[in-house]
Design a protein around this nucleic acid. Sequence first.
DNA 1: GGCGCCTTTTAAAGCGCTTTAATTGCCAGT
DNA 2: ACTGGCAATTAAAGCGCTTTAAAAGGCGCC
Lengths: 331, 331
Amino acid sequence: MDQRPRLDDVAARVGVSTASVSLVLRGAPGPSAETRRRVLEAAAELGYRADRTASMLARRRRHLLGVMLDIRNPFHAELVEEIQAEADRVGYEVVLSTLTRHRDEERAVETLLDFRCEAVLLLGPDFTDKRLGALAGQVPVVTIGRRVADRDVDVVRSADHLGVAESLAHLIGLGHRRIAFVDGGRGAVAAARRRGYRDAMRRAGLQDEIRIIPGDHTEEGGIRAGRLLAVADDRPTAVVASNDRLAVGLMDAFLRAGLEVPHQVSIVGYDDSTLARLAHIDLTTINQDAPAQAKFAVSAAVQRLDEGRRERVETVLNPHLVIRGSTAPPP
Amino acid sequence: MDQRPRLDDVAARVGVSTASVSLVLRGAPGPSAETRRRVLEAAAELGYRADRTASMLARRRRHLLGVMLDIRNPFHAELVEEIQAEADRVGYEVVLSTLTRHRDEERAVETLLDFRCEAVLLLGPDFTDKRLGALAGQVPVVTIGRRVADRDVDVVRSADHLGVAESLAHLIGLGHRRIAFVDGGRGAVAAARRRGYRDAMRRAGLQDEIRIIPGDHTEEGGIRAGRLLAVADDRPTAVVASNDRLAVGLMDAFLRAGLEVPHQVSIVGYDDSTLARLAHIDLTTINQDAPAQAKFAVSAAVQRLDEGRRERVETVLNPHLVIRGSTAPPP
DNA sequence: GGCGCCTTTTAAAGCGCTTTAATTGCCAGT
DNA sequence: ACTGGCAATTAAAGCGCTTTAAAAGGCGCC
């Protein structure tokens, strides 16, 4: 309400120019120790804080990273936490733009561009490669979580097919053969995991056991799939889910159908979300190392912005299996 | 990368001043129909979009609402969706600032202020009333979800005690007497619900049955409480949880302990989150009407900003019970 | 005392837009 | 022909900061 103090106010109070104050406040070289002290003191007294809007405009640089996410996705929540922390560390601010029912990816990105973010990080986007390429023509783009063919888009992802392959190796090692997969729907991430399942089954000589149940990366989807599978007469002895939420839905449906997990049926998830770690869910799943992905993504952006990198970079992390209580040998 | 077009570029292309272009683009009166047409055309051709940073600075008004939330909270996710939509409708932009492990409320709000949001909406803040009052001295503040005593802070909340009272009325109506409450921890929201439980139990003459299990608004907390309750020899016949996540944890723990819900024990949640609606969770719970809360909150802010309201307003919505499958008469 | 060389400070030119007051051009009215 | 009035347009002054080039001061040295 009462106007916040401006640079002028601080300058007037100390009796120096605004230039000096600006220099001091950003720790730039120039001002003498004495001036620094007095400016800092005055700023503190007035409770001065710079207006980001104004300083963004004045600096040719904005030091702003845009992040597009789906606020309902717990894995995104984890990533955002880490992105915030890392951005802080390297001196960038973060602006979040979320998908909602009435706000599609196009619109979410538009908002980020209107704020003139210097780079955008897209969490699991479903944009086409072509659209991503076009976007990368306007602003550095880093996608997290999926493969992108375009040669201007930086990518950070974990090797989804390896993750699924590890799950299968684990299950097969336990003696399972009839292993179904609950699908994650149309998205790019889901596609990679589905393909990983198919390939791994084939490589294990289990091509005849391949069975993909449609689904959609939500608990609801898992429940539907679970109901379906629970009553099948050729019920699989193990199920791999395209993500943790599906797995939780599955587990719930199985429990209600009177099936014991893992004794009658094993379940493996994907993401190692906080959900999976809950004592009673205790889900065997694939960890994607969100903190590492966040760090790589932020530094990909920063390298483009501050260090002039031009060539694309693709960082592929190796996911790893976390064995918990939802898997056991087949009955 | 290649500089985005600026106002000048559009103006030059049409052969008019930047002033005219600015007026046209914001639909302000003045420019002739012919000019409008040509400007719009040129803007489209160039793919011009205004730089929000610059226009915010130039306008004395910023048309920016800051929202502080906890990105891990599903109820917050719902609120944010609706806040976005409503803000859109009334011509405001929204900037999100989330709590994380390394970012407390103070810091989250600081970010919003640095962007010079014209008002801030705080989702379920744990600030003290005093701190909120101080904040309200700097910028209009709307809190959502809890009571605040300060006379400058606008409040939108649902009557938590009524919600809990309804839950109890429902359970008592079914014949329950031994009804426990799983607590939500230290926050302001949790306190209101706890109090609601105590009062309602007393009013029903069940003061001797009052039993409050510590907890913390997470699934984990629910699981701990569930384990505890499952083995108690004076096991309650019904449990009211301070929120849905707790309830889901409870339900999970009970199921694993071999207790049937609702036949051996009934559960009621709070929030009516999407989780509660899942076919297999099917939780009886309290609906808080997130869309309505979001609308009231946004319009509270807008009234202060655009219509000069000065007196505080407190909007208290009546929550309502949603009866689903997790409650039944006692065994 | 004058000169060059540092260090510290500051005037002033933006950043890309909005907004207001002033200007221009037209036409009707006298 | 001249004026007043109106609609359309624009020049120019910011918004609150950053940044650069230039100014000012201080010092030692010839």
